[in-house]
């Protein structure tokens, strides 16, 4: 009997120590333009994760992916920088792995600050305000052959 109680307690202990489910990154359309000028664009992107840092990271990735592949409504970048996402990814798999997945895009983040953060259950919901150096980002993509220069 005592043995059964001890086993039950051990099992409960193990279950209690199981970490909360890891949230994975998912692109959403929750990215808006705050301001823009000739050189830069300020975006407010949303992200959610079990830690603040991870939620911020997801929000930043959401912002760059929307800028690259989807375009930002009511901004100077209504059209995406890369017109055909799947074609670009097939042709340049290494580039996107390094630039997006491994956060190479951070080189073009001028500033990034948490505009809003609230905790619901164990999940952080953040709104991140990110300023991108648009001119240099575009030049870099052109140099890497990911986007063409203006022209035919």
């Amino acid at each position: 009997m005592i043995r059964k109680i001890v086993l039950s307690l051990m099992l409960m202990n193990i279950l209690a120590c199981t970490p909360t489910q890891q949230l994975v990154y998912q692109r959403t359309g929750m990215v808006t333009c705050s301001t823009h000028d000739r050189m830069s664009i300020t975006l407010v992107a949303e992200g959610q994760a079990e830690t603040l840092n991870k939620a911020v990271s997801f929000a930043e990735r959401n912002a760059i992916e929307n800028l690259l592949f989807k375009g930002i409504p009511k901004s100077n970048q209504e059209k995406p920088l890369i017109s055909d996402e799947s074609k670009a990814k097939v042709e340049n798999p290494g580039f996107f792995s390094s630039f997006v997945d491994n956060r190479g895009f951070q080189e073009f983040v001028v500033s990034s600050e948490v505009a809003d953060d609230y905790l619901s259950g164990k999940v952080h919901f953040v709104k991140q305000k990110i300023v991108f150096d648009l001119t240099n980002l575009r030049n870099y993509l052109q140099k890497e052959g990911i986007v063409k220069k203006f022209g035919i």
Binding site: H36, D37, R38, N76, Q77, E78, K79, S83, K148, F150, G151, I152
Partner: peptide, 19 residues
């Protein structure tokens, strides 16, 4: 300034279509 990038991007789309 508010629309010049969008104008150029739309022209570029047309170029891509021509190609």
């Amino acid at each position: 300034e508010a629309e010049i990038d969008n104008l150029l991007n739309t022209i570029q789309e047309k170029f891509n279509d021509i190609v």
